[in-house]
Design a protein around this nucleic acid. Structure first.
Lengths: 351, 351
DNA sequence: AAATGAATTGTCAACGCTGTCAATCGGCGC
DNA sequence: GCGCCGATTGACAGCGTTGACAATTCATTT
């Protein structure tokens, strides 16, 4: 005997359920796994027994016997405010398929990163991994995963990989739309604050901006385009530089809300009336967007949906079907443009 | 044969390691689990074999055989920006003990919450659970956990439970210290924006404020104390109410940064010079605190440490030692008061 | 009614590890 | 050198489930 004679009722096992339903354990297993080849009447009897006994299959046993883990990994560095939203979406999708999400922080700068990843995937026997940026762009992470034959989904990578799906948002279209909103209001000279160099988002948002300008026959003045890094502090510099231009723009497009907030600060310090003398737009709909005055017009990322979609891709991946479907799935999610108080008609003397 | 004749080298098992080290599987198991009663020389031989074969014990098998899961749950509702920090700390602590964290979103308003919790803990065989607010205050969650005999740690609960440890921060002391900073600068009339009624933080922060006022022989004017709910929007109302008082205060203490940011907005709209005519302080050191101008003086919560400590409590919980140590551990973590540009000397005419 | 074959169900071993308990080893006292 | 005892080590079953494959059932066909 291994167990103490505890009075507590032990958790039901598949064997108990089988007995209750008058079938073999294997049949119960079939029902649990939704396999075909079980007579409807039998299935219902088993289901009833499961219900009655409040049976929960033992994950560890299932994993051990079936050589799988029912676990998907979500690897991240830099916990940001979007992480929790993203993981919530991913967990929701996992639950629909009775899987679980293992959220694992990793240090992108760790020289031993490959080993850390390897340990994780082998210890947990992960069935798939979702890589949040910047991990989605680290060759050693991708290589380790690939070597282990573990399907990986890259979220908003800078560079797409041919052998792995990625989930992106259509930043370019949204940036274009947001810029249109400024142009419609009479703005002609518009400053632009770039994000960190090398990021896909940086490029796409700028391209969308440029698209809109060109579509309206407007030139982009290079002196009004400054490189930031998505951070507030750096944003202050950019904004100062843009706003101290002799020919001051009437609007600024910041590549994210943090930098947009920075522009708001600088404008205040320079006694520029907002939004009358200067319209400002951001990107991401971060909490800060609605916590400053005027509230930033921005673009909302469907972060939770991205989590869902990413998990879904992993779940759809069927090893026996030679891996990923072709062409490689690259879902692009639509963004919502949100117009708030930070934009107004361009000052008439500048129109 | 269950396995296909795959050419890939199979992952090493305990049996392979045993063979390599010239011992039995059981001895390898002893080494892995750090049990005593293994000769040093033998242990080293086993360790060498593990190293050489790059062996990773199979979690599922360990769990199944040992009737444990190596899994700790982190249950949350309302993913906030602090969640990712918290979970990062918890994961770090878990890794030190070779455990894993299952992060599970739950809906506090779900009428079937108890069942959801029950399913989770039984399916995953969780060894312990960390409850983030507001889950830490839901009786049905606590009861379900208790009935299953699963140790739970409550994070910043409104109401402490006798049978479970909680992790708190000393909000009261920090609020007092922050208020002192205002009083030192000559402020006498100070407004206060309360958080959501019923929250422990709401109460503690106010008490700390009141402590400081009384310690300096200052009265708290009830007309300057407004109830908010920790949210920006509601904060706007509170701030308007406080600032439209005929005898305007020279400083405002907001119970969190979101409401502090709201106060900044309102002051701007009312053309009150910041920080010359009005000092504002917040709480939490949220991102927004440094994204507005002037930057908010505030208090930083050691969120990551709280995650570490919470996981540590679960790990320390030894079922065979009759559960929790007595007295019930209630770690209180210190907060950091951060003074920034949002506070200045009180206007002289008001001193 | 017997034969046929597809559909359904069951048997049994194995997944990789740990608990129980028995076997072996090594040192010490006499 | 022998016996004894504690320290090490090993043999073996079993954790709860699933894969492979065998057995059974049942509706058809002839």
């Amino acid at each position: 005997m291994r167990r103490l004679p505890v009075p507590t009722r032990e958790a039901a096992t598949i064997e108990i359920v089988a007995e209750q339903a008058g079938v073999s354990a294997k049949t119960v297993s079939r029902v649990i796994n939704n396999e075909r080849g079980v007579r409807t009447e039998t299935r219902e009897r088993v289901l009833a027994a499961i219900e009655k006994l409040d049976y929960q299959p033992n994950l560890a046993a299932r994993g051990l016997a079936g050589a799988r883990s029912f676990l998907i990994g979500l690897f991240y560095d830099n916990p940001g405010d979007y992480l929790s939203e993203f993981q919530t979406g991913a967990v929701q999708r996992c639950r629909e398929s009775n899987l679980h999400l293992m959220v694992e922080p990793l240090d992108a700068a760790d020289p031993d990163l490959a080993r850390a990843v390897s340990t994780l995937i082998r210890q947990l026997r992960l069935e798939g991994v979702i890589l949040l940026p910047p991990l989605s762009d680290l060759p050693e992470v991708r290589a380790t995963l690939a070597a282990a034959g573990i399907p990986a989904v890259h979220i908003a990578p800078m560079h797409r990989q041919d052998d792995a799906p990625s989930v992106d948002t259509d930043d370019r279209a949204a940036a274009r739309e947001l810029t249109d909103a400024l142009i419609e209001r009479g703005h002609r000279r518009i400053g632009f604050m770039l994000g960190r160099a090398g990021h896909r988002a940086t490029e796409q948002r700028y391209l969308g901006f440029a698209d809109a300008m060109h579509a309206h026959g407007l030139a982009v003045d290079p002196k009004l385009v400054q490189t930031g890094n998505f951070e507030f502090t750096e944003g202050l510099e950019c904004a100062r530089s843009i706003l101290s231009n002799p020919e001051r723009p009437t609007a600024i497009f910041a590549s994210n809300d943090d930098m947009g907030a920075a522009a708001v600060c600088v404008a205040r310090q320079m006694d520029i009336a907002l939004p009358q003398q200067l319209s400002i737009v951001g990107f991401d709909d971060a909490p800060v967007a609605t916590m400053i005055w005027p509230q930033l017009s921005t673009v909302r990322q469907p972060v939770r949906s991205m989590g869902r979609v990413a998990a879904d891709l992993i779940i759809q991946h069927k090893p026996h079907l030679r891996g990923w479907p072709q062409p490689m799935p690259r879902p692009h999610l639509d963004l919502d443009v949100i117009l708030r108080g930070s934009i107004a008609a361009a000052p008439t003397d500048a129109a």
